[in-house]
């Protein structure tokens, strides 16, 4: 059983768990995920691996408390055992020397781009991170990101830190100022990733987005997470979760996200 060693409520609604999972820590790579079931009644929830420590045999996950499942997960405490915890799943990001790389993180994605920034920097890339939130108090891991990236640029919709607006506004401005990127990675909410892909397309910059559709088993068995990439159906769990943002059919992605809105409300009403 996987045990919670440390629980931290990082910013409102975002939690970090550090858990004992030595086998997963040994294998984890940036961009992979785990499937977590908080208790026997709960759903299987896919969560990106935010960090790992092979020596301590621990991994760190960051998640947004939003639905009934993540609410049950957030209710667990340090010392508790997690009902089910499976990973690592999915493919990792492709880590190599690209040149100058922009990493965009929002929401749980700020945590998810940290191991990516670290790995890309170790490969000799110039790494610029874009961290976004609604307000300054919702940004986190600033120092951690700054410690591994060449530069971290902030954007907040209320303008309380960095540029006022969204990360895609800031990235657009930077691109218009002739800043050059060889590769962009974006991790966070679907809409943010969609906007980033939209922003980089005219510049022809290869843009990898980390998809987070509804999943059940996470091993290719159910097809719930399917999406359309370059006209073909792909399963996010085994073919991804990372895809070329310019080839994704975003209408399909955005539509499939609302498949269980009504059930989600019923579930939450019971909590």
């Amino acid at each position: 059983m996987v045990k919670i060693l440390q629980k931290e409520h990082i910013v409102p609604n975002i939690h970090e768990f550090i858990v004992t999972a030595p086998d997963i820590a040994r294998k984890a790579r940036a961009g992979q995920f785990v499937i977590v079931i908080p208790d026997k009644y709960a759903e299987r929830i896919p969560i990106t691996i935010a960090d790992w420590d092979n020596e301590q045999g621990t991994i760190s996950i960051l998640f947004l408390e939003i639905g009934a499942g993540t609410q049950s997960l957030a209710a667990l405490n340090t010392g508790d055992e997690i009902f089910s915890f499976t990973g690592p799943l999915g493919r990792s990001f492709e880590i190599k020397k690209y040149g100058t790389v922009g990493l965009v993180g929002g929401c749980y994605g700020i945590g998810a781009i940290y191991p990516l920034a670290k790995a890309l920097k170790e490969c000799g890339n110039k790494v610029v991170c874009y961290s976004e939130a609604r307000s300054r108090f919702l940004l986190y891991w600033n120092e951690k990101l700054e410690s591994v990236a060449d530069e971290v640029r902030y954007s907040t919709t209320d303008g309380s830190l960095g540029s006022k607006g969204h990360s895609h506004d800031l990235l657009k401005k930077d691109l218009e100022l002739d800043e050059h990127y060889d590769k962009i990675f974006a991790v966070g909410c679907t809409y943010m990733m969609y906007k980033i892909a939209h922003t980089t397309k005219p510049y022809g910059i290869n843009t990898i987005v980390s998809m987070n559709p509804v999943m059940i088993d996470g091993t290719g068995m159910c097809g719930a997470c399917r999406l359309e990439v370059g006209g073909e159906t792909k399963f996010a769990c085994v073919d991804g979760p990372h895809f070329d943002g310019h080839k994704i059919n975003w209408d399909v992605v955005l539509n499939r996200r609302k498949a269980y809105i009504e059930e989600e409300i019923i579930s939450k009403e019971r909590l």
């Binding site: 097809g223 719930a224 999406l227 159906t233 539509n255 609302k258 498949a259």
Partner: peptide
């Protein structure tokens, strides 16, 4: 890829 179209595996799982 419309909503409420399932694979048998997903529906039964």
């Amino acid at each position: 890829n419309l909503n409420r179209l399932y694979s048998a595996n997903e529906y039964l799982t």
